[in-house]
Design a binder for these strands. Structure first.
Length: 303
DNA sequence: GTCCAGGTCGCGC
DNA sequence: GCGCGACATGGA
């Protein structure tokens, strides 16, 4: 194995640990979070076909992100660029949060704490991976989500040559290469299996361009409409994916959201979904972030 | 054994 | 547009 260190300039303010472990994605395979060392690890498949192991961490002076890459053949320039692009995308290094921070300062404590470089919620290098993962969070507990993705990656992800137990997230092609029946048998996803298999087939065939949803020129409503057209993606999943795509206008209304609003703002009573969402109405296009950090502050005072 | 999960689909009205 | 049962699977 060879090793290469890449360095990405971090924006300011930026908080690596709160970005990498901003939500459950940090511990959903092939991602893994090392809490002691505060590093985010991931096996990544490059366009060249190479399977590499990435380990991202804050630089010593916290002004940059260092990525330790373990690889077989020497990395080409384009492979280095691809890795840098993927990590920067996962950490949203180019996203601008100044307007959100300004709102947080208007609110005062504890919201001002977020202006220390929080707000960047971890995402996957591809929309395909994020759609599959999001579908695997619906109508199931977190433990089930992790199990399904572990099985998916074990069955269809390509192994890292330096440690065959670690695998990359499967390509749409790898999933589309087997029949729907074989897929359903290989990965116990229940009724979600045909959703994921069909999605992979459409992407692999070139009939569906999920990555185009990144286009910043697309208005939220247009992106939402395209997401809702995907089987297995309803209002909750669409709002989650909009967040991952950088649109924070919509709240992901699910059992977690309802419980949080009920306990925090309605004394345990169950408001209607409309009443519950009204709590974050004045955050405008930053509603999702306000909700997310409101939720985490309730769970963890150290934010 | 029963219930239900970080919901969504397809149907009937 | 809205209500409602069905849906795979495994953990509580």
């Amino acid at each position: 194995m060879n090793e290469t260190i890449l360095t990405l300039n971090a924006p300011s303010p930026f908080h690596f640990a709160h970005t990498a472990y901003s939500h459950g994605w940090a511990v959903l395979t092939p991602n893994a979070w090392d809490a002691e060392r505060e590093t985010l690890r991931r096996v990544q498949r490059l366009g060249s076909g190479a399977i590499v192991l990435l380990e991202a961490a804050a630089s010593a002076d916290a002004t940059a992100v260092t990525v330790r890459v373990q690889h077989g053949d020497p990395l080409s320039t384009s492979e280095r660029v691809e890795i840098e692009t993927a990590v920067a995308h996962m950490l949203r290094l180019d996203e601008d949060f100044s307007e959100f921070y300004a709102l947080c300062r208007e609110r005062g404590e504890p919201w001002t704490r977020l202006t220390a470089g929080l707000g960047r919620l971890l995402r996957s290098p591809t929309v395909f991976e994020d759609v599959v993962k999001t579908i695997c969070t619906t109508n199931i507990q977190w433990g089930g989500t992790k199990r399904m993705l572990n099985e998916l990656v074990a069955a269809f992800g390509e192994p890292f040559p330096g440690d065959g137990a670690r695998r990359a997230f499967p390509t749409p092609e790898a999933i589309a290469a087997v029949s729907p029946e074989e897929f359903a048998t290989a990965v116990r996803m229940g009724y979600r299996a045909p959703y994921v298999h069909t999605l992979a087939q459409q992407v692999a065939a070139g009939d569906l361009d999920l990555e185009a949803l990144h286009d910043p020129a697309l208005p939220t409503a247009e992106v939402k409409q395209r997401l809702l057209a995907l089987k297995g993606v309803g209002p909750y999943a669409a709002a989650t994916l909009l967040m991952l795509l950088g649109h924070y206008d919509e709240l992901a209304v699910d059992t977690v959201f309802r419980d949080h609003v009920s306990k925090t703002y309605f004394g345990g009573e169950r408001p209607s979904d409309k009443e519950a969402q009204a709590i974050y109405a004045d955050w405008g296009r930053w509603k999702y972030l306000a909700y997310w950090f409101d939720l985490w502050q309730g769970l963890n005072e150290t934010v």
